[in-house]
């Protein structure tokens, strides 16, 4: 007899193969978008938290999750939930490292305060992913995708992107 727990663990491991289509260095697990995995007789259900509401990658992630888990159960369903807001604090330590390795500065740590202004360090000082310098400036709070901002490093003179603090 196979107990439920190893299956759930296998599902989490499989989900780690599913990458963010816009930042393929990071998996949906490390990004913190997997809210819950539910395993029942003949079925697997995964709830995902969207990073940004208008993010087109959310649909792609949902489809990719369903495809990756297809062999785990006859019925596999990935759904979106807003049960709690996704915040950039949900990105794991390993995810932050993968972001850096991919040339993205990880987001600043949130304050845990729920008010919209307090939850954002308005001009977060992020470390340059190339040289580690904190001598960086925010060039644009908006970047090539909804979750990315553009910075410049005064030391290595590189423009770089960060994952937005939200």
């Amino acid at each position: 007899m196979v107990s439920v727990v190893p299956l759930e663990q296998a599902i989490w491991a499989a989900l780690d193969d599913v990458k963010d289509p816009e930042i393929p260095q990071i998996s949906v697990v490390d990004l913190g978008v997997v809210h819950r995995v539910e395993v029942g007789p003949g079925r697997v259900r995964v709830e995902l938290l969207p990073t940004f509401i208008g993010c087109p990658a959310v649909d792609l992630m949902r489809v990719a999750v369903e495809e990756r888990l297809r062999d785990f159960a006859p019925s596999v369903e990935a759904t979106i939930t807003f049960a709690e807001p996704w915040t950039s604090d949900r990105i794991t330590e390993r995810g932050r490292r993968h972001l850096r390795e991919g040339g993205f500065a990880p987001p600043a740590r949130g304050t845990g305060d729920d008010s919209p202004s307090a939850s954002l360090p308005v001009f977060p000082v992020v470390a340059c992913p190339y040289c580690g310098s904190l001598h960086t400036t925010l060039e644009n709070a908006f970047g090539p995708t909804l979750c990315r901002a553009i910075h410049h490093c005064a030391d290595c003179r590189q423009p770089f992107e960060s994952f937005k603090t939200v």
């Binding site: 940004f52 509401i53 807001p85 915040t87 919209p116 939850s119 954002l120 908006f142 937005k164």
Partner: peptide, 8 residues
């Protein structure tokens, strides 16, 4: 969720 985005 919307409020967090609107903060920007």
């Amino acid at each position: 969720k919307i409020r967090r985005e609107e903060a920007y």
